[in-house]
Amino acid sequence: MQDRTGSEADAAITDLYAAHYVRLVRLATLLQGSEAVAEEVVQDAFVALHRRWRRLREPAAAVAYLRTSVVHGCRSVQRRRGVAARHPEEPAGHAPSAEQVAVGDAAADAVVEALRGLPDRQREALVLRYYGGLSESEIASAMKISNGAVKSHASRGLAGLREAMAEWS
């Protein structure tokens, strides 16, 4: 039985990896800045999911579980930035070729830069909504805060970004 559950979990992880890994790594990079750390955080989330697969009643809950783990993992990274010291900060995709650096990309850089200056919760709310495309309650659940708090973090975050965004609009 252990084996059956184990291989079920293996198959599910493979599917979830194909469907969500890249997006989750991108999400985690936007949340805490480093691609290398993002991959570690997301891999940790998959490993944790595999461990508790047996006890996860609904496969649909798996994606929400991964998302919550990733947000939580990035928070921990932010808390002890010592992890980042082991992985020299490489700003999100900051080695584009000359062709890639279109006007839009420069603008994106400005926003990502400004995003990095925001308090963690505000950055989380904005990234989950505008990159993750999540609903308010999905965001609340991933951040483990109330719907009302999502609203206020997002609106304070937007206000904080306004200045940076005005520069390229």
């Binding site: 991108r26 890639q100 603008a107 994106a108 926003v111 990502v112 995003l115 990159y131």
Partner: peptide, 8 residues
């Protein structure tokens, strides 16, 4: 902007 940054 977030999607552009993410896709890189």
């Amino acid at each position: 902007a977030l999607h552009r940054a993410a896709e890189r």
